[in-house]
Design a protein around this nucleic acid. Structure first.
Lengths: 343, 343
DNA sequence: AATAAAAATTTACGCGCGTAAACTTATTTG
DNA sequence: CAAATAAGTTTACGCGCGTAAATTTTTATT
C-alpha cells in the first residue's frame, strides 16, 4: 500500500493509468468494463487507498444503490432475525441496506420513511406497524420509491406483499391440537396492532368450524408491544380463573405465549403433554426464545429465508425493470409446525 | 402545501424571499440565524415541500452530522435496548444516528467501520465484539474518526469508554447470595468473546475471597453468541451431574442463565427461593426476558440510560471541542440488584 | 439620532463525481 | 486482413450545496 493519499478519482486515474470516466463506470458496476481493465483497476486498488466519495457518487445519480429496510420493532428478536435475513439478501445482490426500526411508533415509521426519502433509495422493504400505520403516508411514499411490504400486509399499499399464509399455518396448528387433545381456545390482544393477528383469529374460526368444534376467543386489554407482560398478567388471570373451557390455548403469537407460560409457572399450573399437566399452550412464530421456555413452546415457524428471498427478489425485479408491476402481487409462504413440549 | 415542486435551495430561496447562503446557514443550524429570519424560513417550509439534498449537503462539509452506532449483536435484546437508548440521545442532540450490527462477526465489525468511514461521520459509538475484535483496525479507525467505546472495553482504544462497573455489580450480587444462602459458584463460557466476562470472573474471585469463601468456576465449551443453547446444554449437564459444590450458581450473563433455567425445568430440578427448591440461579444484565423465565430471574440491571447518556455526551464533547482529550477516560456506572424468584 | 455591531444579500467559486459527445484504440468477426 | 464493433480516452458541463468576500440592510447601543 503506497503512502500517497488519493484525494479523488482524478488522482486515482492518474496513478492507475485509467481514465476517470472508465473508473466511474467500474465503480458503478465492475462488470461493465473489460476484464483486463477491471484487473488493472483492482491491481491499482491494492496499491493505493482510494474509495469514491459516497456523497459525490450519489448526488448526480437518479437512483442510488441503497435499500431501506424498515421493521416495526427491532427489540423483538423476531424482527431482528427477519430484518437480518433481508439485509443479507440485499448485500448479496450488491446493494447497501439500511435497517431502521419504527420502535412501535407510527410517527417513527413516518420519520423513517422520510429519512429514507432523503437518501433517494433504489427501493424500500417495509414491515409496517399495521393498524397504527399511516396508510396515506405510506401510499404516498410508494408513489416515489419502489416499495415492497413484508410480514404485515396493508391492503393495496406498496407494489407487493410477502409473508406467511396465516390461514395455512393456523389451520395446521388447530388441526394438530384437535387431533392430539382438546380443541384449542384462542388468546390474543383485543386491539392487535398487527394485521396478522386478525388473519389468525379469522383462520382460527374457520379452522375450528372445519373441525366441528366451537370457537372460544379470549382477548386481553392493553396496547403496545409489551406482549409478554400482557400475556403474563391477563393471560395468567384467565388461567387462574379457569376461564378457558378447554385445557388448550393457542396464543396469537409466541410472545403472548411466553408471558402466559411464565404466569402458569408462577401459579403452579403445569403446562405440557405429560399426564400431570393440566394445560396445553401453543404459540405462533417460533420466536428465538420459545425453545427455552418452560416447557419449550410448541409453535409455528415462519419461513424467514423464503420470505426474505422473495421480498428482496420482488423488489429487485421492480428496480431493475424500472416499472411497477401491473397488479399488486401477494406471496404467502407456508408455516411449519414446531412440536416441542408445551402442546 | 403548494403544488410547485422545489428542486433545490436556489428555488426555495426564490419563493421564500430569503437568500441562499442564509438558507444554507439555517439548515446547518437553525439557531445561527436571527429569530425573525428563522420564522420566515419555517413559514415558507410549511407552504413548500423542500428538504436540502442529503448528498450535496454532506459533500462539501468537512464533517457531517451523522453518528455511527455499532453494536455486536442486534438479535440480542440487551444490545437492541442499549443501542436504542444511544440512538435516542443522538437524535435529541440533533444528530443522525445510523445503527449497525456486527452480528457477532469481526469481519462484519470491520465492514461496519469501513462503511461508516465512507459516510464521514462526526463520530462513532462502538460496542465492540471484544476478544474477537480487530484491535488494529479499530485503533486505526479512531485516528480518523472520534470514537467512544461502550459496553465492552478494549484497552487504550478509542477516546473513552463507558460501561458498567462489573466489580461493583458482581460484588453486589455475590454479597447478596452469600448473605441469603450458600455462596455461589460461577458459570461462564470457557472462551468468552466479551471482555466483561473476564472482568466478572475476576470480580467473582475477589468478592468470594472477601466473603471468605472458596471460589468455584465452571466453564462451558462452545463459541459464538448462542448463549441460551450453551447454558441449556452444558449448564444443564452440570446440574444433572450435580457438579456444583453449592446450591447456588451465578451465571456470567442472563442468556446463559435463561438456558440453564430451561435445562433445570426439563430435568425437574426446582430452582428458586422456596423450601422445596434445590438450586438458586442468578444472572447479570437484566435481559428483557429475564422477567419471564421460570422462575423469574434474579439479576443485575445495568444503568442503560446513564451509560447511553454519558457515551453520547462524551462523544459530543470531543466533536464540539474538535480535540481529543489528553487522557482516555473510563466511566463506570453501578449496577443494581434486581431481586426476583430464582435466587 | 448617530454610530457600532450584527445579520442578510450578492456574487462567485469549487467539491467530487455522473455523464454526454466526439474521437481514438483495441478486439472480434467473417 | 479489412471491416465492424466494442471499449477506452479526451474534453466538457452540470448537479446542489458549502463557503468566502464584499456589500448592503437591519438591529442594538449610547
Amino acid at each position: 500500500m503506497s503512502q500517497k493519499k488519493i484525494r479523488n478519482m482524478e488522482e486515482f486515474a492518474a496513478v492507475s493509468g485509467i481514465s476517470r470516466p472508465t473508473l466511474s463506470k467500474y465503480f458503478n458496476d465492475p462488470e461493465s468494463v473489460r476484464k483486463s481493465t477491471r484487473q488493472r483497476v483492482e491491481d491499482a486498488l491494492l496499491h493505493y487507498d482510494y474509495r469514491p466519495n459516497f456523497y459525490a457518487m450519489n448526488q448526480n445519480r437518479r437512483t442510488t444503490r441503497n435499500i431501506g429496510i424498515v421493521v416495526p420493532y427491532l427489540a423483538d428478536p423476531f424482527f431482528t432475525e427477519i430484518g437480518r435475513a433481508v439485509e443479507v439478501k440485499c448485500i448479496e445482490a450488491g446493494y447497501s441496506p439500511i435497517l431502521l426500526s419504527s420502535h412501535g411508533n407510527p410517527d417513527q415509521e413516518n420519520d423513517n420513511l422520510e429519512a429514507l426519502r432523503a437518501l433517494k433509495p433504489a427501493g424500500v422493504l417495509l414491515a409496517p406497524l399495521g393498524r397504527a400505520s399511516d396508510k396515506g403516508a405510506i401510499t404516498k411514499f410508494s408513489t416515489e420509491v419502489p416499495l415492497v411490504l413484508f410480514d404485515a400486509n396493508i391492503e393495496d399499499t406498496g407494489e407487493a406483499f410477502v409473508g406467511t399464509d396465516n390461514f395455512q399455518s393456523v389451520d395446521l396448528m388447530v388441526e394438530y391440537l384437535c387431533r392430539s387433545g382438546q380443541p384449542p381456545c384462542f388468546f390474543e390482544m383485543k386491539s392487535p396492532s398487527n394485521p396478522n393477528a386478525n388473519k389468525r383469529r379469522q383462520a382460527y374460526f374457520e379452522s375450528m368450524a372445519r373441525q366441528g368444534h366451537e370457537a372460544h376467543v379470549f382477548q386481553a386489554e392493553g396496547e403496545g408491544w409489551d406482549f409478554e407482560e400482557i400475556g403474563s398478567s391477563e393471560g395468567g388471570q384467565l388461567l387462574i380463573d379457569n376461564a378457558f373451557p378447554t385445557n388448550t390455548v393457542l396464543c396469537s403469537n409466541d410472545r403472548l405465549a411466553i408471558g402466559m407460560l411464565a404466569a402458569a409457572y408462577k401459579n403452579d399450573i403445569k403446562v405440557g403433554l405429560e399426564p400431570d399437566a393440566s394445560m396445553r399452550i401453543a404459540g405462533h412464530d417460533d420466536h428465538p426464545f420459545s425453545k427455552f421456555t418452560c416447557p419449550p413452546l410448541t409453535t409455528i415457524s415462519q419461513d424467514y429465508a423464503a420470505i426474505a428471498d422473495r421480498a428482496v427478489s420482488t423488489l429487485f425485479g421492480i428496480i431493475e425493470s424500472d416499472s411497477k408491476p401491473a397488479t399488486r402481487k401477494e406471496s404467502l409462504f407456508d408455516g411449519k409446525l414446531v412440536m416441542r413440549d408445551s402442546a
